Amino acid sequence: MRRLLLISLGILFFASHTFAQKFGYVDTEFITSKMPDYAKVQQQIEQNTKTWLAEVEKKKLSVEKLEKEYKLEELLLTEDLKQQRLAEIQAKSKEAKAFENQVFGEEGELFKLKQAAYKSILDQISKAIEKVVRAKRLDFIFDKANDGLVLLYTNPVHDYSDYVLEELGLELDPNLVEKAKKEEAQEPKSPKKN
């Protein structure tokens, strides 16, 4: 009986190691802090940001100057001139806000600059992560630099989306299924542990 219990425990222990998934994490903040290219990109972005901030400030000061001048001369102006000056102030104010939004808005110049500048760095990090994943035979890699853990890599073997779609009675796109099969065939198979 004791021998059977030991054999059963041994089999369970062996099976748990055979089917265990390997997780890992990286700290992209730490990694980028060690990359000289990242420091150069940061300097370029800071320089452009300072230039744009100065332009925005210059436009705002221009509007403030027009407003002060208007207040000083308001009593001396005819109704037509008042309307003309107010329209000019409003136009300059809109122009300043439009420029600020164009540069610092959601899809503005700063966003585009950051996206383009960081792309090569992120590509380098991504390629390095893939090499490490393959060398260390990891299934998942997380990034601890963000507020919550962000998943950077997952082994496609662990993607059960197709099964969920099937369970929901939804059809898979045949083109996507074929593409997934091709990608799976290209990935190097990891040797099975015995």
Rank of each mutant, 00 (worst) to 15 (best):
R2E: 14
R3D: 15
F14N: 13
Q21L: 08
Q21D: 04
K22S: 04
K22M: 01
D27P: 00
P36D: 01
A39M: 02
A39G: 01
Q42H: 00
Q43R: 12
T51G: 13
W52N: 09
A54G: 15
A54K: 12
K59N: 05
V63F: 02
V63P: 00
E74D: 08
L76D: 12
L77Q: 11
A91R: 07
A91E: 11
K94A: 11
K97T: 03
K97D: 02
A98L: 10
N101P: 09
G105T: 14
K112D: 03
K114C: 06
Q115N: 15
A117P: 10
K119S: 06
I121H: 03
I121S: 00
D123F: 02
S126H: 07
K127S: 07
E130R: 06
V133K: 02
R134Y: 07
A135C: 08
L138S: 07
F142D: 06
D143T: 09
A145Q: 04
A145C: 02
G148H: 09
V150A: 07
L151V: 05
P156H: 04
L165F: 14
L165K: 09
G169M: 01
L170Y: 11
E183K: 10
E184W: 10
A185C: 05
A185T: 05
E187L: 15
K192H: 15
K192W: 13
